[in-house]
Structure formats: C-alpha cells, structure tokens
C-alpha cells in the first residue's frame, strides 16, 4: 500500500507544462507521481502504482519500449497511452489498456483513469468468484446429492455464488468496449504466467 489510500497514478510525460496540467486535474482524487522520461518512469514504478499515463513520443525510451518493460516486470498496473494521433487497431495488439489522444480534456482523463481502476476491480471480483465456484464444484464432485442437501456449508456457498454473479454483472460496465475486452483478456493470460 502507498502512504495514502488513494489510487496511485504515474504520469510519464516529457513536456513539463502538460504533465503539470494532468497533475492539477488528478491530484484531488489520486496520489500522483511524475516522471519526465521513460527511464525515470521505470524508476518510479512499483507495485503501488495502479495506472500509468504514458506519453508515446518521448526523447530517450519511447512509450512502446517503456510499456514492454512494464509488462516484463509483471506489475498489475494498467497503462494508458497518450498519443498525438488517433491510433489504429494495432494499439490493442501492442499491449496498452487504453489510449488518449491529445489534446486531453480533464473529464476525459478522469473517465479513463476511473475506467481502468474499475477494470482492476472486475478482475479481482472475477478471481474471487472463481474461488467460490471452484469450492462449490469440489463439494459437488465429492459428495452425494443427499449429503449436499444436508450441508450448511454448501448452502452458504451456493448463495454466495449467486450474489457474486450479480455483483459481477453490475461491474460489467467495465468491459463494454473493445479495448476493455482485450485488456481484460490480456490480464487473464498475465495471471496465468505468475
């Protein structure tokens, strides 16, 4: 955990004015870290960082290279690419979780960061849901239906599975568009590698 309980956003941006503007917009709701280039960004990055705003065109390490190193380090953070041009489809294949094209407005920035945080919540809910389903399945596979009918533990599990499923549907807003969908799938493959 970081010092505050606020989610941590790391801004990697070589233009100081632009970086300051983002910080001003975000600092009420998030703990903001700043880095002026890719190397500094990688130094500032640790397990506390939830979202990285990564400028694609920077002197030194490019945004793409920084992204690659972030993924190699297997940190659970989400990365939004900030770009001057509207990217084509390849953005998803490149491994970014979202993109923002300049100039960025305040509400747009908030929306993207919130959305990326929601997605992390969806991932952890899904993880929790799986754990319940697996427990339930183990009971079903090892006990007779008479034993299950008698079991309070099974009864309780079944109820929690239903509740959890509803919770997940409510969080589904997080994966309605294509980049959410792909990024969530990418997250699954990353989990598996751990």
């Amino acid at each position: 955990m970081s010092d505050s309980d606020l989610p941590v956003v790391l801004i990697v941006e070589d233009e100081p004015d632009v970086a300051e503007t983002y910080k001003l917009w975000l600092q009420q709701e998030y703990e903001v870290r700043m880095a002026q280039n890719g190397d500094e960004g990688l130094e500032q990055l640790d397990a506390d960082v939830d979202v990285v705003l990564l400028d694609r065109m920077m002197p030194g390490l490019s945004g793409d290279e920084v992204l690659e190193r972030i993924r190699e380090r297997d940190l659970g953070c989400r990365v939004a690419m900030v770009t001057a041009v509207e990217p084509d489809f390849d953005i998803l294949e490149m491994g970014f979780d979202a993109y923002l094209s300049k100039p960025i407005r305040s509400e747009q920035l908030h929306e993207t960061v919130d959305n990326l945080l929601d997605r992390s919540e969806y991932d952890s809910l899904l993880q929790e849901y799986y754990a319940l389903v697996e427990k339930q399945a183990t009971l079903e596979a090892t006990k007779s239906s008479a034993e299950l009918a008698e079991s309070d533990q099974y009864d309780e599990l079944t109820q929690r599975v239903v509740e959890m499923r509803d919770d997940l549907s409510e969080t589904l807003g997080g994966i309605e568009d294509d980049s959410d969908f792909i990024a969530t799938l990418r997250g699954l493959s990353d989990d598996e590698d751990n």
Binding site: L126, V133, I175, E176, D191, E192
Partner: peptide, 20 residues
C-alpha cells in the same frame, strides 16, 4: 493449453462481450 481457471474467466469475459 490453459488451466481451468483461465478458461473459466475467459468464458465469463467473452460472455460479457457477447452480451454487449
């Protein structure tokens, strides 16, 4: 190719995408 946990999650995520 993949463990059941990952396949389960994949199915869940894909179902949501199909839903939308």
């Amino acid at each position: 190719y993949t463990d059941k946990k990952t396949v389960f999650k994949f199915c869940h995520v894909l179902s949501s995408r199909l839903d939308s």
